[in-house]
Amino acid sequence: MFGQLRYLISESFRGWKQHRTVILPSLLTIFLCSLLLASSLTVLGAVFRVLSAEGTLYTVEAFLPENVGADSVAVIKSRMEHFRGIETVEFVSADSALADFRRHFPGEMLDLVDDNPIPPFFRMTLVKESRNPADLEEIVSAISREGFFDEVQAPVDWATRVSEWKFRMVFWPVCLSLLLLVTLSLIICNSVRLSLLSRRLLVENMKYAGGSPFFIEFPFVLEGMMQGLVGSGLAVVLLLAVVKSVAQAIPLVAANIGGLGNLLCLVVLMVTLVSAYFSYRTVQDFLLAKRNERD
Rank of each mutant, 00 (worst) to 15 (best):
Y277T: 12
P25N: 07
C33M: 15
L181K: 08
I187S: 09
E81D: 04
L266M: 11
H104G: 13
T88Y: 00
V127Q: 10
C265G: 15
G45S: 06
A99C: 07
N205K: 09
S191K: 04
I216N: 02
S93C: 01
W16G: 09
F13W: 02
L234K: 10
G228A: 02
G3R: 11
C175K: 05
V268E: 10
L136E: 04
P155M: 06
L112K: 07
L269M: 15
G147A: 11
D71H: 08
T282Y: 01
A209Y: 06
L179Q: 03
A97C: 01
Q153T: 07
A53V: 11
V68C: 03
L35C: 10
I257R: 00
K77L: 12
G69H: 08
S198M: 13
H104R: 14
S52L: 00
Y277R: 00
R20V: 13
A99Y: 12
N116A: 09
G15Y: 00
G85N: 03
W172A: 10
S279K: 03
C33Y: 06
L180I: 10
T160H: 08
V243A: 08
K77A: 08
L197T: 08
L98H: 01
A276D: 03
F91H: 06
I30Q: 05
L180M: 06
Y280K: 05
F63N: 05
K128D: 07
R14G: 15
T56V: 02
L37P: 02
A289I: 09
Y280R: 04
D100T: 00
D150L: 05
K290G: 12
F214Y: 08
A97R: 05
F121T: 11
N67C: 09
I139E: 02
C189H: 14
L252Y: 09
M226Q: 03
D95W: 04
L252Q: 06
S177Y: 03
V268A: 14
S195D: 12
W165L: 15
S34V: 13
T282L: 07
A276F: 02
A99Q: 06
R79T: 15
E293P: 12
V243L: 12
M270C: 14
M226E: 07
Q4V: 01
G15N: 15
N205H: 11
